[in-house]
């Protein structure tokens, strides 16, 4: 039997890798993918706790996170397309419209 800690460590590893990606990459599409990776890591902790506490509430939470991730991907990619149409780039360093 794998311990709960092992699952949590794996989720933490994946979350940190995703966070590193968000902070180091400059391509907006890859930053979005890293955010998806972080959401996946959180889903893993929900499922692991759900299993070890013998309570299925966590599965419903994961279902909701997937819904939010789908909505976020649709809106976020639409924003990236709109930005690309105006700026011809997806490099986040070049996108500074909101900067004073």
């Amino acid at each position: 039997m794998v311990s709960l800690n092992a699952y949590l460590i794996l989720a933490a590893l994946l979350f940190s890798i995703g966070a590193v990606g968000v902070f180091t990459r400059r391509n907006a599409l890859i930053i979005y993918m890293c955010i998806e990776l972080m959401l996946n890591a959180v889903n893993l902790t929900f499922v692991a706790f759900s299993r070890f506490l013998d309570n299925m509430d966590g599965h419903v939470f994961v279902f909701m996170i997937m819904t939010v991730a789908a909505a976020e991907a649709a809106v976020g990619l639409a924003i990236i397309i709109a930005l690309f149409r105006n700026k011809e780039t997806v490099n986040v360093d070049a996108i500074n419209l909101m900067k004073g």
């Binding site: 699952y7 998806e36 692991a48």
Partner: peptide
């Protein structure tokens, strides 16, 4: 890993929704 944790529905949704729908959009 979800299958290892007995979350069969979530494992299927992970493949269908995440690896399928969202990543095709990406």
């Amino acid at each position: 890993i979800y299958v290892l944790l007995d979350a069969h529905l979530i494992a299927a949704l992970q493949i269908i929704v995440y690896a399928g729908a969202i990543m095709v959009l990406f």
